[in-house]
Design a protein around this nucleic acid. Structure first.
Lengths: 341, 341
DNA sequence: GTGAAAGCGCTAACAA
DNA sequence: TTGTTAGCGCTTTCAC
């Protein structure tokens, strides 16, 4: 037996209950304008008594303001985006803006759909992962007239503002560090990269920098789906069967790297002397491992935080603000899987 | 240079562009009512040409319908809720409902706030984790008059419908299995449980069932914060220093369990003969480990899926439907850390 | 098959 | 400090 019969309460109900005009009730509930302490308390008491919950739909329509920020990301199930979200939440907690999340599953068509859905709620801003979007998506974003921040990746042309790292450069830096440490027979294991542009850019930067040192990737393999940890084990076993003389494996993310690390330790292989390893992302998980996998911090928290701050700033000062570009500097953490460190 | 000057487009703009009345434009855009193919195409073309995105705020206010389902959960950063969300999304994908997520951080006051915010958007339904809520929260839920499904836990009195497992029983079952396998000196490691009711219930069921077998928990420790994997290592080391003769450790979640498992393997301890281990949740991660930790599937995906299905069914048939209770049966996976299995 | 009028519940702007 | 009036952009209802 739920209370279904009674229509939702309105301002009018509070007004009648308190004997104060709707307008003044509205002011009290929003802490807007001057209201006498007496009236204020009478209204608050009445609202509480009848259990009034404001209708934001009506409020948003009337005020033409929605305190929502659309956040559009590919996934929530790996470790990377939750941390971005934390940064966004922390920044927005200081404002009256609220994040609303949409998930694209790395599919451009889904992104377009989610974006359309989100924009139809007229949010105050949009944060979206990546810098590659369909023409239709870009058009929607531009036409929306609201602040847009693309995050994670700065290698490309943003619609408006952008906060991220250069994944191409991240790949290069890792390659340089590997070469510098004297590794020569280098393998790469990663996700299928048709839709993961950031992984692709890292790989491109990686091979480029190796080429500069006269080295070619000795072997490589790509996966999709499944438990990353398990995939890391399998692929590591595979690649070493195929190419036993590898002395370094670069993984496109930390989870498959950890899978590989655990497998190699089990096999009694000397890490980092016989084989060196590195991943990417700087996930917190690594801290609890027997050996800490070398990795590169992707600045996820900061990216989220700064993106949200840009939105918040734009919302405050309605006037024309120039698009911002923030390029963060990821740093290598050599952990215990890198020779000479 | 963003296009800020031009106000967002309205139905009226599409109407003018296409030479069709606002009303008919509205019908086309919603696929409602009979519209001639000619008119339909003319409208669609016009909408696309000028880049119109409907205003759902206005639509929702006018129609008194919002295709949103509020999902309120404690956290997104562990492995459990993302999987619940996947179940919810999968179920809602077959409807025109959309999930909107709010995060409480396990804090009742935050839950109350988030719930209030969410309800003020007048969603079509609410799914919220746990069955313990403040009186104010319960009152809001009841007063909202919309379908409510509490998830994860069935040990208590729901506001409306509920889908979950009995955590008390889960703890009992694990205790029984441990006793049956002949373990005698049993330790417990878990989170501080003041606010994590489900962990508390598992612990209560666990100690209860042990008591029935004449066994008391030999040692225990609780943590909060930090990397679960690292905490699992530390606490495992600690508890064995204090109580070296333990022959089983029950962890309140898989992540700290894995930390413990990796630590003990490093120490050369024979698992499961010298010490047996078990966690809780059945996270996918376990598959990639050298030894698979014993665990108990918490039916997370199914819980999400069924909860969403209940909401969807309720939204369809407006008429009074009885509150549903669905109690799922978790199963033990003995993995490689349980003697005699 | 199409259009005109009314109003969803709230807030901006102005009046008192 | 408080109240009144007029919409916000759409959908419902009813008329054509």
């Amino acid at each position: 037996m739920t209370a279904k019969d009674n229509r939702p309460l309105t301002l009018r109900d509070v007004s009648e209950e308190s004997g104060v005009s709707e307008m003044t009730v509205s002011r009290v509930l929003r802490n807007r304008g001057d209201v006498s302490a007496t009236t204020r308390e009478r209204v608050l008491a009445a609202a509480k008594r009848i259990g009034y919950v404001p209708n934001k739909i009506a409020g948003a329509l009337a005020s033409q303001r929605v305190n929502l920020v659309a956040v559009i990301i590919p996934s929530m199930s790996n470790m990377v985006f939750p941390e971005v979200m934390t940064g966004i939440s922390d920044a927005l907690d200081e404002t009256d803006l609220q994040p609303v999340v949409g998930i694209t599953g790395y599919q451009p068509e889904k992104e377009e759909k989610v974006l359309y859905e989100m924009l139809s709620w007229r949010p105050s801003g949009v944060i979206l992962a990546g810098i590659e979007h369909s023409d239709a998506s870009r058009a929607m974003l531009r036409a929306s007239g609201i602040p847009v921040v693309e995050i994670m990746d700065v290698d490309g042309t943003p619609v408006d503002s952008v906060v991220g790292i250069s994944h191409r450069r991240a790949g290069q830096q890792m390659a340089e560090a590997i070469v510098e440490s004297g590794y020569k027979r280098i393998g790469f294991l990663g996700t299928k990269m048709l839709l993961d542009h950031r992984a692709r850019k890292r790989f491109e930067g990686f091979t480029q920098a190796l080429a500069k040192a006269g080295i070619e990737v000795a072997d490589q393999e790509f996966y999709s789906g499944g438990s990353a940890l398990a995939k890391g084990r399998e692929m590591t076993a595979d690649i070493l069967k195929r190419t036993p003389d590898l002395d370094f494996i670069y993984y496109s993310n930390d989870m498959i790297g950890v899978g590989g690390l655990l497998y190699l330790q089990e096999q009694g292989i000397d890490i980092p002397n016989q084989i060196g390893l590195a991943g990417f992302n700087g996930v917190n998980l690594l801290k609890g491992l027997p050996k800490r996998l070398a990795t590169m911090d992707a600045c996820r928290y900061d990216i989220g935080k700064q993106a949200a701050e840009i939105i918040a700033a734009r919302v405050d000062q309605e006037d024309e603000v120039e698009p911002t570009t923030v390029m963060l500097e990821p740093t290598i953490d050599f952990g215990d899987t890198f020779r000479n460190h």
